[in-house]
Design a protein around this nucleic acid. Structure first.
Length: 700
DNA sequence: GAGCACTGC
């Protein structure tokens, strides 16, 4: 700690902060900015008038960095130094330095827009440009003007374009702090390979044969490529080993790997053994692997992007940015001088790659963010001109407004409604918040809470739940409910209710290949949503899960109706002659129900006339994922509203208008939902992964 | 008859 580069700059930093409301600090990896800045300011007395907040883009980072700082200051975590992340607030009245995720800080500013409890706000890792960080940057710009006398803002980052941020904050000073990285030699390919998988394989073997010891980190785009490369590498190494090469092991590393497999990269390799780590961009920022000396960079990354003109997401393999390329190269120089092999020519790096990754705010649907900003009532700011470092396109903003209008969050003049205000308080996508509001009126709040919570856990939930997989499974057939034909939302509801009736039995999850961790997360989310809804409804709502309701034939009418209102912006109508659908948006799209859906066709093989969907995603074709049957009479008012839509009025209006929709409280007895301690479920995850692997193999 | 990079309230 004593030799951290940033400490040599202490006086300079404190002096600059003293004289400026906003300071940008560029510090490479290993500079110590995340742990030291807060301590410096604390020592200098900035915690006398308020708390120092340090935001992090990730939960683990908030926890681990705060732990370090507490240790260095010799205090107990949760007292002078603490952290706050979703579901976990380890701060107390004593807390002077608080680490939190940027999402938590955004939530806090909802109840306290001026964030008066803080004397200093440090936005760390701003170069990652997460949606939340970008919105915070915009809020900070405004806040320093309002709280001129008593707020300091520091923006710290590894490779952020300091000049750009400085210009954004009226030319605030930029301080550069060197990092502790070793030099990394960059080697380019003479041309772009026809297959970067083969090129990676060849380069890896070359390194293994020619270069001295040191681990190799290979950046690939996804699980499929990683699995292929791991197999090929193992094969090639085995053939080599009879020669004079040192031993080697190959480790995959990606997000859908069970935690205990991910952790393997942290245990040191056996003596005289080289490790090959084949990873996604998870190894770029989220996980740091020690011992890496060589990096192989394919130059590609898989990125999810939103197209506001179609309302569709797609997951594309795209070229990385220069910032990303540098970040990847830096992974080779953490312990000693290293080498980075770029599988593309230097001309591509210099002329073709984008300077920086397209920020998330330009790649996402903005309905949630626009609603959030509208709910802040920043009377001095026109929401559509909200000052952001990289503003989204007007098309994207208009798309957000249309969506919000269709679900009654804003009126025809673009003003936030009372419903919209309540929606903003829920940590959910607007469609699901709206569903909860409506469900509250329909008397099916409890069911809607469950559906919303289940959808929050998304993919972690059901590995291979399709029918064919169930048939092929060797064990007893799954007893998982199937949504009674109504669709995926209903199935999710039934699964949770089933689990609830087993008293949250972990074995039941395992037997049905549900991820215990995912289910525990759902339980946490549901509890949090319950609490917020209770607060909104003054504690009088019925949020109980169904207790063995003995209805022989339930058609989930109320719940489906609530979903239809909530998903008014995600409605589709079936074609007359076949089972394709046309979305009922502003620009109609031809889409299909995702094959994994449990939606059932009638005796003639036809799917329902109308469905709402949770998400549109273009993979091999445009698909609707998670669909639910809705009825014609509920659809009519939506189509009417769609006709009346006037985008000029929506984006121009700032006058307040009357409320047309009110949420009424229903007086019903309440029951606290119990809390469960999250449990590990590594076995089931490994099991599920193995099953998927075997199933795939058997298919070919 | 498909497949999913990474985060977060």
């Amino acid at each position: 700690m004593a030799n951290l580069p940033i400490l040599q700059f202490e006086e300079k930093i404190l002096d600059t902060v003293e004289r400026n409301p906003v300071v940008v600090i560029i510090g490479e990896t290993g500079s110590g900015k995340s742990t030291q800045l807060s301590q410096m300011l604390h020592k200098r007395g900035y915690t006398k008038s308020g708390i120092i907040a340090v935001t992090q883009p990730r939960r683990v980072a908030a926890v681990s960095v705060s732990r370090r700082v507490a240790q260095e200051l010799g205090v107990r975590l949760g007292e002078e130094v603490g952290y706050a992340i979703r579901f976990e607030d380890r701060t107390s009245e004593k807390t002077r330095i608080k680490y939190l995720t940027d999402g938590v800080l955004l939530r806090e500013s909802l109840t306290n827009p001026e964030l008066n409890q803080y004397s200093v706000i440090i936005l760390d890792e701003a170069h990652e440009r997460s949606l939340n960080t970008d919105i915070l940057l915009g809020l900070m710009k405004r806040l320093v003007k309002i709280r001129t006398s008593n707020l300091k803002v520091l923006i710290t980052s590894a490779t952020l374009d300091g000049e750009k941020v400085s210009r954004f904050f009226s030319n605030c000073p930029v301080l550069n702090v060197p990092g502790k990285l070793f030099p990394v030699e960059i080697l380019y390919s003479t041309e772009r390979p026809s297959s970067y998988l083969e090129a990676s394989l060849k380069t890896a073997i070359d390194i293994h044969v020619r270069e001295p010891e040191g681990d190799v980190l290979i950046f690939m785009t996804g699980q499929d490529d990683i699995e292929k490369l791991v197999l090929k590498l193992e094969e090639r190494i085995q053939r080599l080993e009879e020669g004079s090469c040192m031993d080697a092991i190959v480790l995959p590393l990606h997000g859908s790997l069970p935690p205990e497999m991910q952790v393997r990269v942290f245990s040191p390799p056996p003596l005289n053994c080289r490790r090959f780590i084949v990873a996604t961009n998870i190894a770029e920022t989220s996980l740091t692997v020690d011992g890496v000396v060589y990096v192989i960079d394919s130059g590609y990354v898989k990125q999810r992007q939103y197209n506001p003109s179609t309302g569709m997401y797609s997951l594309d393999v795209v070229q990385i940015s220069r910032v990303q390329a540098d970040q990847r190269a830096g992974r080779a120089g953490r312990t000693r001088p290293g080498k980075c092999y770029r599988l593309y020519p230097s001309m591509v790096y210099h002329d073709e790659l984008l300077d920086a990754t397209v920020p998330e705010i330009q790649r996402s649907s903005l309905a949630g963010s626009v609603l959030y900003l509208k709910s802040l009532d920043l009377t001095d700011i026109d929401i559509l001109k909200f000052d952001l470092l990289d503003p989204p396109s007007s098309e994207s903003l208009e798309d957000a407004l249309k969506q919000l209008y269709l679900i009654d969050a804003i009126d025809e003049n673009g003003s936030i409604t009372r419903v919209g205000r309540t929606m903003a308080e829920l940590p959910l996508e607007p469609s699901l918040s709206r569903t909860l509001m409506e469900a509250n009126e329909c008397g099916c709040l409890s069911q809607a809470l469950t559906v919303a919570a289940m959808l929050s856990a998304e993919t972690t939930l059901l590995p291979g739940r399709s029918k064919s997989n169930e048939k092929k499974r060797k064990h007893a057939p799954s007893e998982l409910p199937d949504g009674s034909g109504w669709g995926d939302h209903i199935q999710l509801l039934q699964i949770y209710e089933h689990w609830d009736q087993t008293d949250y039995d972990i074995d039941w999850c395992k037997d049905n290949s549900l991820q215990v961790r995912g289910m525990m997360f759902v339980k946490d989310v549901r509890k949090q949503l319950c609490q917020i809804m209770q607060k909104i409804g003054n504690g009088s709502l019925d949020v109980r899960t169904n207790e063995r309701r003995k209805e022989s034939r339930q058609d989930y009418r109320n719940l489906r109706k609530a979903l239809c209102v909530g998903y008014a912006n995600q409605l589709a109508e079936r074609m007359i002659r076949h089972n394709g659908y046309r979305t009922s948006g502003f620009k109609s799209q031809l889409v299909q129900v995702h094959p994994s859906s449990v939606l059932r066709a009638d005796e003639e093989g036809m799917l329902p006339n109308y469905v709402v969907y949770h998400e549109l995603i273009a993979t091999s074709r445009p698909y609707m994922r998670n669909v639910c049957t809705v009825e014609m009479p509920w659809v009519a008012p939506i189509l009417k509203k769609l006709e009346k839509l006037n985008i000029k009025k929506l984006s121009g209006g700032s006058s307040h208008s009357e409320e047309r929709i009110e949420v009424e409280n229903i007086n019903l007895p309440k029951k606290e939902v119990d809390v469960a301690v999250p449990t590990d479920d590594r076995d089931s995850r490994v099991q599920a992964a193995r099953e998927r692997f075997l199933a795939r193999k058997a298919n070919r």
